[in-house]
């Protein structure tokens, strides 16, 4: 069972209290963008075995969206953080580096 701490209300929420929102930190390419950019935005997703960044919503709780960094292989959670960022904050990156030296995910490492 996955347990994430909601950064907005501080609750240690288990999976059934949350709603998964897919991959985090996608950059949107809308009308006017090239076909390649739009296809990448629309369909291309990471599917790592290891460090992953996701969006979650505390749906049966405070209702807020937030980000989570976790390991898909072990369900280890490195941390959760605000939704109002376009890349993981440094302390999250540091927490991952401490556990998974040399990790990388898309442009982040």
């Amino acid at each position: 069972m996955l347990t994430l701490q909601c950064p907005y209300c501080g609750v240690m929420a288990e999976e059934t209290e949350l709603h998964a929102g897919g991959e985090a930190h996608l950059k949107r390419f809308g009308p006017g963008s090239s076909d390649e950019d739009f296809e990448t935005y629309m369909f291309m997703r990471e599917n790592p075995k290891g460090v992953h960044f996701e969006r979650w919503r505390h749906v049966n709780g405070c209702g807020k969206w937030f980000h989570a960094a976790r390991c898909t292989a072990t369900l280890e959670v490195f941390g959760t953080y605000s939704a109002q960022v376009s890349e993981p904050p440094q302390q999250i990156k540091d927490a991952i580096t401490a556990k998974r030296p040399g990790w990388s995910w898309r442009n982040f490492a």
């Binding site: 929420a13 059934t16 209290e17 749906v59 049966n60 709780g61």
Partner: peptide, 10 residues
């Protein structure tokens, strides 16, 4: 106060 789910409802 705790907001959560009660079985299948908020």
């Amino acid at each position: 106060i705790r907001r959560t789910r009660l079985a299948q409802v908020a």
